[in-house]
Design a binder for these strands. Structure first.
Lengths: 408, 408
DNA sequence: TCATATAGTTCAAGCAATGAACTAAAGCTT
DNA sequence: AAGCTTTAGTTCATTGCTTGAACTATATGA
C-alpha cells in the first residue's frame, strides 16, 4: 500500500503549523515553477498557475511577493496565440550568489546568478598546504570583496554564498573538523566575514559534496540518484538521492575513499587499513606507476601520468587498472549500503576514465552483478570548478526552497 | 549557517499547499504529542497545548477530530493541584494494527495496539522453503482472520497491517522481487486480501528493515541513528537515520550482507564475490565450524553451535571469530558510506555476540578507527519477533503521522 | 463562603487559498 | 473598422484554519 505524501507536512513533532507556512510553501512552489520553465521561456502567471495547480488569483498574489523580494522580474509580453498576451516572468538576473573554494593549490570565487549562470569567476593560485587558516581566509576574503564589487559594478547584488573545503565539515557550526591536505583540525571559521551584510550569510560544504551537487545540476541525463566519486589527493564522494544530498546523521556520508577494498592492505592517513584511497588516491597511483609524486605541482604529475598511459607504459597502466578494480570493489559495497545504481567519476578519475573504465566495470560485475548498468558509470559533466559552482548552486537551491527568507 | 527547517514544507514542486494541510499537520502533531507522554500519563488538552505550542483553542478542536476518528479517548480526570482538573487523553486502546511475517520456518501474526502493546501473537510453524506463494499466503490469511476475530471478541478493531518478508521488496507495488530462501522471484501479493475492509490496508516490508524499526521503538538508549544487522540464513540490515528508516532510492538500502569483505573470497548466492554473507551467514558459519547444517531445523544447528562454543571447541570458535572480523570490515565500510556510528546486532549475531564481540571490535578499530565507540556496538533489544512487531509498529507510525486518513 | 488557579469553550479577527465575476488586451471574422 | 472570441490578470465574497481574548466550569485553600 502506498502512503500518499501530504502536500504540506509537519517537521515531526516540533513546531505547530500555521497558515503562514502554507504561504511560504506556495511561495517556493511558484518560484520553483518559474525557475523550471525552459531557459528563456518566461512563463506568464497563467502558465505558472497551470503548472503548479494553484489558482490564478493565488499565483498573482504570490508573484507580487516574489517581485517585492526582488527574486523575479517581469519581462516583456508573451503572446499565447489568440487572447491577451501574458506578462513574462523570470528569475531576477541582477540577484546572485557567491561560490567560494579553498583547495590545496588555490582559492577561488565565483558569482552565479539565480539561473545558475556563472557571471564572474576568479581563481588565485596559492599554496595552502599546511598553512594556518587565518591567512588563507584573509586572502579569500580579499578575493571575495574584489569579485563582489565587480559584480556590483554590473548591477548584480550578491545575496549569500557557499564555501567548499577539502575536508570533513560541520556545516551547522561553521567548523572544519579535519582537512588533512590543508593541515587543518577543528578550525572554526568566521564565514559571515567573507560576505558582510549578505542577507543569506555563507554556508559551508565539503568539497566532494558540493561537486556532487554541481553534478546534479548539470547532468545531461537529468539523473537524480547517483554517487559522485571525487578523485583528488584524497578520494571523496557525495551521494545524491532524490535530487538531495544525502549527508548522514553527522553530515559525513559518502566517504567512499575509506571503504575497505583490501583487508590485507596498507595503512591509510585516516588511521584505517586497506582503504580505497591507499590504492586509488593520486599519490598512491603516482607511486604505484613509478612516478615521483611532485607535491609542488600535482597537475604536472598528472599530465606526466597521462602521457605515460598514452604511451602504454606497463607500470602506469597496471597501476591505474589496479585503482579501477579497487574502485569497483568500493562502489560495489557502497551500492549495497545505499542502494544506488549510478556512478559519476570526477576529479582524476574523470581524466583516467579511458584506462579505468574496463577494470572498473569488470570489478563491478564481479562484486555487485546487476547493480550498475555500464551506461550508469559516467564521467563528470562539471570540470574542476565543480566544488566552486556546487556550493553556489546549493545556496541558490536553499533560497529557492525558502524564498520567504528574503523579506517577502 | 544553519537553514531553519520550516514547520510546514512543500513536497518539492508537486502539489500546492492549502490550509487543510495545516490542519493535517497539526492533527499529527497533537496525536504524536499525546502518544509521547510517558505511558499512563494521560495528558490534558492544556498539557498538550503547552507541549505542542498550539493554543488551547486549537488543541480543543483538533482533539475533537481525533476523538471522532476513534484514535484517542477521554479517560477520567487529571487533577493538576490547584485549579480545575483536566480531562485525560490517551490513545484509544481498542484500536490496533496487525503485524504479520512470512519466514522460512513459520508464519506469524500479532495484534498491536496504538501504544505498541502486543495484545495477541500467534506463530504457526510451517516449512515455506521453496513453497509456491499462493498456499503460504492462504495460510497467512487464515491465521490473520483467526487473530483478527479474536481481537474483535475483545472489542479491538484492526485498522491495518504490515507484512514482513525475508527478501527484497517493492512496497509501492506490493511485490516481492526476490526472496532466495523462500524461492520467490517477482511475486505480486494481494495484500489487502489479508485484512479485508481494513481502512489502512496492508503494507509490505523487508524483514531486516522491519526489525530495525522494532529496534528503534524498543531501544533502551533511545538511539535514533543506527545500523541494524540481522543475521539469519542470509545477512540483512536496516539503516535508521533520524528515527527514520533509510531505504535508498529503490528501497533496498542496508544490504549489509553483500558488502565485499574479501575480494578473493568465494561466490555468493547474489552472484557477487566475497560478500559478508559468504563468511557470516548461518550456513557459512555452520560449515566453517565443521557442523553439518541441518536445513530442516536451523535452530537445532544453532544450539549445537552454541554448545560447541561454550565447550570452546577450536573449529567453531575460529569460525565465529572469522565471522566477527568480516562483520567488522563490512561495518567499517558501511560507516564510511552512510556515516553511522552505532550498530545493533540482531538474529544469530545477537546469540553469538559473546564470541563475536572481541574480533568485531578489533576489526572495527583496524578498519574504521574512531568511528564506532565500543559501547555503540550493542545487542538487539527485540528478540525473534522483531520483524513481526516492527512491521506493525511502522504501520502505527505512519498512521500517527497522517491521522487524517481515518475519516477525520 | 469566597478568592484563586487551572481547564476548557466560545467568538471575533487575521490570513491563506478558492472560485466566480470582472476588466484588459490581444487575434480573428465579417 | 466594428464586433466576436480567447486568453491574462484582478477583485471580491466565501471557506477553513489558527489565534488571542473573553468567558464558563471546576477544582483547592483560606
Amino acid at each position: 500500500m502506498v502512503m500518499p505524501a501530504p502536500a504540506v507536512s509537519g517537521t515531526g513533532g516540533a513546531a505547530p503549523g500555521t497558515v503562514g507556512d502554507v504561504r511560504r510553501s506556495n511561495l517556493a512552489l511558484v518560484l520553483g515553477s518559474i525557475a523550471e520553465f525552459p531557459p528563456g521561456t518566461c512563463p506568464s502567471r497563467a502558465q505558472v498557475a497551470a503548472a503548479t495547480g494553484l489558482t490564478k488569483a493565488s499565483v498573482s498574489s504570490l508573484v507580487l511577493d516574489l517581485l517585492d523580494a526582488g527574486l523575479i522580474r517581469e519581462v516583456g509580453l508573451n503572446p499565447q496565440g489568440r487572447g491577451r498576451p501574458g506578462v513574462g516572468l523570470e528569475l531576477n538576473p541582477s540577484r546572485a550568489v557567491m561560490g567560494m573554494e579553498i583547495n590545496v593549490d588555490y582559492i577561488s570565487a565565483a558569482v552565479v546568478d539565480l539561473t545558475g549562470k556563472v557571471l564572474i569567476r576568479e581563481v588565485k593560485e596559492r599554496d595552502n598546504r599546511n598553512s594556518a587558516h587565518a591567512p588563507v581566509l584573509a586572502a579569500l576574503a580579499a578575493l571575495a570583496v574584489r569579485v563582489r564589487s565587480s559584480a556590483g559594478e554590473r548591477g548584480v547584488e550578491v545575496l549569500g554564498g557557499g564555501l567548499a573545503v577539502p575536508g570533513l565539515v560541520d556545516p551547522a557550526r561553521a567548523r572544519v573538523l579535519t582537512a588533512p591536505n590543508l593541515g587543518w583540525v577543528d578550525v572554526d571559521l568566521d564565514l559571515d566575514a567573507l560576505l558582510p551584510e549578505a542577507p543569506l550569510g555563507v554556508a559551508l560544504f565539503n568539497e566532494a559534496n558540493a561537486a556532487a551537487l554541481a553534478e546534479l545540476r548539470d547532468r545531461p541525463d537529468g539523473a537524480s540518484d547517483f554517487l559522485f566519486v571525487s578523485g583528488e589527493v584524497g578520494v571523496g564522494g557525495g551521494i545524491v538521492i532524490g535530487s538531495e544530498l544525502f549527508t548522514g546523521p553527522e553530515g559525513h556520508a559518502g566517504e567512499v575513499g575509506h571503504i575497505v577494498v583490501d583487508p590485507d592492505g596498507g595503512h591509510c592517513s585516516c588511521g584505517g587499513t586497506g582503504c580505497l584511497e591507499t590504492v586509488a588516491g593520486q599519490d598512491a597511483i603516482f607511486t604505484a606507476a613509478g612516478l615521483v609524486p611532485d607535491t609542488g605541482s600535482r597537475s604536472a604529475s598528472m599530465s606526466a601520468l597521462l602521457q605515460a598511459l598514452k604511451a602504454a607504459e606497463p607500470g602506469p597502466v597496471t597501476a591505474v587498472e589496479r585503482a579501477g578494480r579497487s574502485l569497483g570493489i568500493a562502489l560495489a559495497s557502497a551500492a549495497r549500503v545505499v542502494d544506488i545504481q549510478s556512478v559519476v567519476l570526477g576529479g582524476h578519475f574523470a581524466l583516467l576514465e579511458p584506462w579505468l573504465r574496463a577494470p572498473l566495470l569488470e570489478s563491478l560485475g564481479k562484486y555487485a552483478p546487476g547493480k550498475y548498468a555500464p551506461e550508469q558509470v559516467t564521467v563528470s559533466a562539471v570540470g574542476e570548478a565543480g566544488a566552486l559552482l556546487g556550493s553556489a548552486g546549493s545556496v541558490i537551491r536553499s533560497l529557492m526552497e525558502a524564498p520567504h527568507r528574503l523579506h517577502a
